[in-house]
Design a protein around this nucleic acid. Structure first.
Length: 271
DNA sequence: CAGCGCCCCTGCCCGC
DNA sequence: TGCGGGCAGGGGCGCT
């Protein structure tokens, strides 16, 4: 579920309910996520006030006076606000109960997510200190893309999905941004022209911004349940459309694996 | 050291 | 209807 727009939507959705609230209890039903949830998580945040929630890439950072909870949703994780007494379902692994009978509940069937504690300067944490710029800020610009890509032989698609280059460009958006930029995903990153970097940078920003505006609607979410498609079904140009007609030239879209990720593109439109 | 694969895990969909 | 195989939106890590 979570690409950057979903993570940002989650942050914006839960923050107003939790900001300034005190942690009453921590319940961990299954600590076996990507890394074990630290056994002493509760003692760090019990009775502490949640100051705010930051986002860095796809990591959510819950700020307390004495440190941060680092939270990653992996492939299938989600966070939502519940009434503290709502009975847990099978994959509801963590609850953090706050005052006012509210709790933050973490659900993650595949358990690729992570919940960690750190009291070091947050951006110096090992998981965060190597990360590239945020795609929606000015430090991510076409000059940066061009300079950073010089001499890189790696395909532009796997390169742009590397969080050291830029954070938050997942498989869906990499496919989409490349199509929208008319760039072939297998092109060596170092062979991008300045002009292509201009367009690519702009398309990455616009597809992410648009998805955030749409509330990060995901592939399998449907509005209301009346079968009305959400953001992706309407807006995706290539992802999930292998073999179907290119929306520009009507030739069939090519689908192949690149770095174990499904890659969809138009050999006619993308060079 | 850049770059490539592996792997963590469950759910779902498809074909037989 | 049941079941096996393949695939899924991430990303750290160990190899070459």
């Amino acid at each position: 579920m979570p690409e950057l727009p979903e993570v940002e939507t989650t942050r914006r959705g839960i923050l107003p309910h939790l900001e300034g609230k005190r942690v009453k209890a921590v319940t961990v039903r299954n600590s076996s996520l990507r890394w074990p949830i630290p056994a002493d998580l509760a003692q760090h945040i019990q009775n502490k006030t949640l100051r705010t929630i930051h986002r860095r890439g796809k990591y959510l950072l819950l700020e307390f006076a004495n440190g941060h909870v680092i939270w990653h949703l992996g492939m299938s994780g989600s966070l939502r606000i519940i009434k503290a007494d709502e009975p847990p379902m099978v994959h509801d692994h963590v609850d953090i109960a706050f005052g006012g009978n509210l709790a933050l509940r973490y659900t993650d069937p595949r358990r690729f997510g992570a919940v960690l504690w750190t009291n070091e300067a947050i951006l110096e944490h090992k998981l965060l200190n190597h990360l590239g710029p945020e795609p929606l800020t000015d430090t991510f610009n076409s000059g940066y893309l061009f300079d950073k890509s010089r001499k890189r032989s790696q395909s532009v698609k796997t390169w742009i999905m590397d969080s050291k280059v830029v954070v938050g460009v997942g498989n869906i958006y990499a496919n989409e941004a490349l199509f929208n930029s008319a760039i072939h995903p297998l092109k060596a990153a170092g062979k991008l022209t300045q002009k292509q970097c201009d367009i690519f940078c702009s398309e990455i920003k616009s597809v992410l911004a648009k998805a955030i505006e749409q509330g990060g609607t995901t592939l399998k979410d449907f509005v209301g349940g009346d079968g009305k498609p959400g953001y992706f079904a309407q807006e995706l140009n290539v992802y999930g459309r292998g073999g179907e007609a290119c929306k520009k030239c009507r030739k069939p879209l090519t689908e192949k694996k690149l770095g174990q990720r499904t890659t969809v593109y138009c050999t006619h439109c993308q060079k």
